[in-house]
Design a protein around this nucleic acid. Sequence first.
DNA 1: CACTTGACCTGTCCGC
DNA 2: TGCGGACAGGTCAAGT
Length: 289
Amino acid sequence: MPELPEVETIKNGLNKLIINKTVASVSYDWPKSFPNSKSDYKSFLIESRVELVRRRAKVLIVNLSSQYSLVIHLKMTGQLVYKDKKTRFGAGHPNRSLIGKLPDKSTRVTVSFDDGSKLFFNDQRKFGWMRLMPTIEIENLDFFKRVGPEPLSDNVNWKVLRDRFKRKKNSSIKASLLDQSVLAGIGNIYADESLWGAKIHPAILVGTLKDKDYQTLYKEIVNVLNLSISLGGSTDKNYIDAEGKKGSYLAFAKVFRKEGLPCPRCGHTIIKTRVANRGTHLCPHCQRR
DNA sequence: CACTTGACCTGTCCGC
DNA sequence: TGCGGACAGGTCAAGT
């Protein structure tokens, strides 16, 4: 899915595109993608106004004037794409092939605003969801009660990272980075990229890490996430932002999907293996066990 | 408890 | 071409 940088990019886009718009109607064709009762969305989504779009971990929160919010998880293949009435996606338009023909067969939910513009929730694999709930109850969701701190928050530093990893000492470092209750927002791409930056083998057990490792790893996580946000995230297959644009981070990635290519640091061949049951990319020379 | 595996889905790619 | 299996950015429930 969209990881932290992709969700952040979508959030920024939506804050430019849908603030103060009023919902006119909603339609959906896959109930699990929109698990809300008809009376709820008629009362608290229709005719309510979008006030603010926020992000926590990989989750988007659209605050509505009804005191309800849409809580959205895009999981692996979810997209949130805005399309207004006047933009023409004619031949030659850069986003034509991506959003010109929406809705399409992957469109699960369509939110229509009263000015005729629409927000499409597309999701090929149907893992994602868009749930309506009272804004004050969001913090009580199990996920939000357990989720770890935001890695780019001012309150987080390498010592926080070390403390968060304490209870994971018998897990691999990669599995721990993917665990949202340890640290929020990191997924498979940025786990591999930051471990390469820190020269740490993904299968190393957390219990063997030294303070120096945490210092380096924390710095790499911040660098990698910030770089990706500045590049609009990573587009591997499905990801596009709220305007239909792809992200360009993977052109700068060092190991993710780079198996068979030389390591940009030492020239040894990058390999792909399996750690924590996930495809894992690393340089076997720089990242020793 | 901590940790791993299977399930949720569709689509694509690769080997036979 | 067709078919089976593995795999894909995430998370949860159920297993050990």
